[in-house]
Design a protein around this nucleic acid. Structure first.
Lengths: 188, 188
DNA sequence: GTCTATAAGGTGATAGAC
DNA sequence: GTCTATCACCTTATAGAC
């Protein structure tokens, strides 16, 4: 039955996100993913064929939200509103997909060795278009003349740091686990 | 001769920093480290006994500079000068030890599974003392009343992002490799 | 101290019964 | 579709000649 298939694939991707986020691709054993999903290891291979495929599926699960996050740059002609929406969306992603978000960060940090080229291209194109729009706003005098790319880097760094370095932040603040209120209150 | 010993250990740590930074602990093969250092694999084990020891040596090579970076908070009674020095020091570390810096970030991101407890304790203690000093400045009315810990998190994120995500930044900006001038110009 | 050859152990992947 | 038993390979680590 197709329902079982979908349910199991979802269970496996969820378990895989968590363990890949904790340990990284190479340090993760498929048997541990299977155990956390409550299934035998062979099922993981039955559904995903290889460990690498499974890892890519986790990466792909976060790419759609990431691409979606940049739409304010195209919909809106007001930079104040656009940046507010963009930053909100980025923080939401860190909160709603903390594991996949971290897997993605780790992947980028190590030079994206497993990220498919077409996804790389989409993300690059999105960044290019966003920079272009920022450039346009600057030319129109709607915002301060900053380097668009470096502005984006700063936004990425500050919105992702709470998801990526959650262990460090929990350790320093003395919390067991991060909650909504540990992190940045979202602008209304 | 002791000189050969020191030279070889240095060669191996340098090669290890680079490869651990590129691929992470688990994905790194000791034979690749040996090859990059220009030595046979057995020498790596002769000098460091285990792969984990070697990895820890790389981590330890960055801890001293990190602890050193926070001294402005204790030497100086003026927050403006102290923060300027601190941020300079953090950026210097990212520039001068980009590989070890990245290894450290990756380690923290994955919950510091290999970081020795005494080093963890030192880093935590340093953060506690820095927060305390910031608190003190705020009480004296020398700076705006922000949360000291979250201020530190933001500084960490923005100073490390150029080293940690160098691949992404190079890809977006179209540079082959990051140089001094690609990144943030240091305040004088 | 250096290096080759090998042992020991673990992990991704699959065959084949159910 | 599910799962147990097993294979094939790879990597850490070491023994022992030089």
């Amino acid at each position: 039955m197709a329902k079982i298939r979908e349910r199991n694939k979802e269970l496996i991707i969820q378990a895989a996100s968590e363990i890949f986020a904790e340990r990284g691709f190479a340090a993760t054993k498929t048997i541990d993913i299977a155990a956390r999903a409550g299934l035998p290891k062979a099922n993981v291979y039955y559904y995903f064929k290889t460990k690498e495929n499974l890892y890519r599926s986790v990466l792909e699960s976060i790419v759609e939200p990431l691409l979606q996050a940049a739409t304010p740059f195209y919909d809106d002609s007001d930079p104040t509103i656009a940046f507010k929406s963009y930053i909100r969306a980025k923080i939401r992603i860190s909160q709603q997909h903390p594991h996949a978000s971290k897997v993605f960060a780790s992947e980028i940090m190590h030079g994206a060795p497993h990220l498919p080229d077409d996804i790389k291209a989409q993300l690059m194109e999105q960044t290019r278009r966003s920079s272009e729009q920022i450039e346009f706003w600057i030319k129109q005098g709607l915002m301060a003349p900053v380097d668009p790319q470096h502005l984006l880097f700063t936004i990425w760094a500050s919105t992702q740091t709470y998801a990526d370095f959650d262990w460090q932040i929990a350790a320093v603040t003395g919390k067991e686990k991060l909650t909504d209120k540990t992190t940045i209150p979202l602008p209304a």
